[in-house]
Design a protein around this nucleic acid. Structure first.
Lengths: 190, 190
DNA sequence: AAATGACCAGAAAACCATTTCGGTCATCTG
DNA sequence: CAGATGACCGAAATGGTTTTCTGGTCATTT
């Protein structure tokens, strides 16, 4: 198998297990069964590896979001599902969750940047959903990236922030309700 | 003038200047022109002083929000003004800004708690506005605390988070637009 | 009776010796 | 001789020890 790929997989494993900071190049080399120097013939530095690993992560996330979309369902239903899937992915995907933890605890700048990139990709995805909704006439004229940003941050607030203050997490039904009563109702045409 | 009040004012000054952690009891005593021991005849400990100081801060914030409300204006207009005022207060009020900075940099637990309390008071205030809007029939039936939470978090996202990624802050007009097109439209009756 | 500041114990800071790690490159090997 | 390797380097992180600082107390003073 090609060495470049082996290194990427080794790095993914190690990042998932020990985080970015907690991963040493020696460690990656050992898992990938290559010498440390070999890594540097494929990648210019540790951060480049993280970038590439995160690129796959983003692809995975998009696949997961694509899978939730049902063309027969309404914009609201699909929008809700996609946003919930994105946030589920956030906490279930081992590497993703590890990076979030690391950003919170260690504040590793490289990790912060990566998380922003992932977030921004997620928001773009939502924006494209809004655009198709607009094209279909299901959704009012609006600025899709802004509305996508609003939706993402709002969902994040209810799914993630909420349970950090209140004892129990909000149920998905409750979340759907509140958004149907507010943002989705505002977006819906007529 | 009464010593208790002097101590509170001294503490407010010092907290504003040096933050909670950066303030020593000796410092407060000196500014208040009392002996250190005297402080403990009025307050059981440092944290109690912070709590009391924050109580005034909350009062100030409520006064500022009350002042923006114009009973002739619509729910949307008032809601927007109140939320913007709250966020303006957040960054303009010296002590408030200092506490936010301290929470971000030092993560002082006592400060985190205080900020949560302030936030929760702000949200309650919005919730009460929504209730009166509902009573007037201007706003759809809904769960005011949840909607208030949504509004607060969304405004925070556009006012605070936005400019941490994008180069320039979003203009108030843009913010009003996006909310008119989404949440406020969803809330508005007919 | 109220105020005070010297005092104490534990927390934080400062210091520094030692280790670790990302990245390089002279050497090796197939 | 092209590609792989790991010993090596300087910078950064770690950890352990000493010193300083600070919240809170309380015997003494006013």
């Amino acid at each position: 198998m090609d060495r470049r790929q082996e290194i990427l997989e080794a790095a993914t494993k190690s990042f998932s297990l020990f985080g970015y900071k907690g991963t040493t190049m020696e460690q990656v080399a050992k898992i990938a069964n290559v010498g440390k120097g070999t890594i540097y013939t494929f990648f210019s530095n540790k951060e480049e590896i993280l970038k590439e690993v995160v690129l796959s992560l983003i692809k995975e996330m998009k696949v997961a979001m694509d899978a939730t979309i049902d063309t027969n369902k309404s914009f609201t239903e699909n929008g809700h599902s996609v946003l919930m899937k994105m946030l589920e992915f956030r906490e279930r995907h081992v590497l993703f969750a590890k990076l979030i933890e690391e950003e919170k605890e260690l504040r590793t700048p490289a990790v912060k940047q990566m998380l922003q990139d992932i977030e921004s990709e997620g928001i773009s995805y939502i924006a494209s959903r809004i655009e198709t909704g607009m094209a279909k006439g299901e959704v009012h004229e609006c600025n899709p990236p802004l509305v996508a940003y609003l939706l993402f941050k709002s969902y994040l607030a209810f799914v993630v922030d909420w349970q950090q203050i209140h004892d129990e997490p909000m149920s998905e039904d409750q979340i759907l309700d509140i958004f149907k009563q507010t943002i989705f109702r505002g977006l819906q045409r007529q």
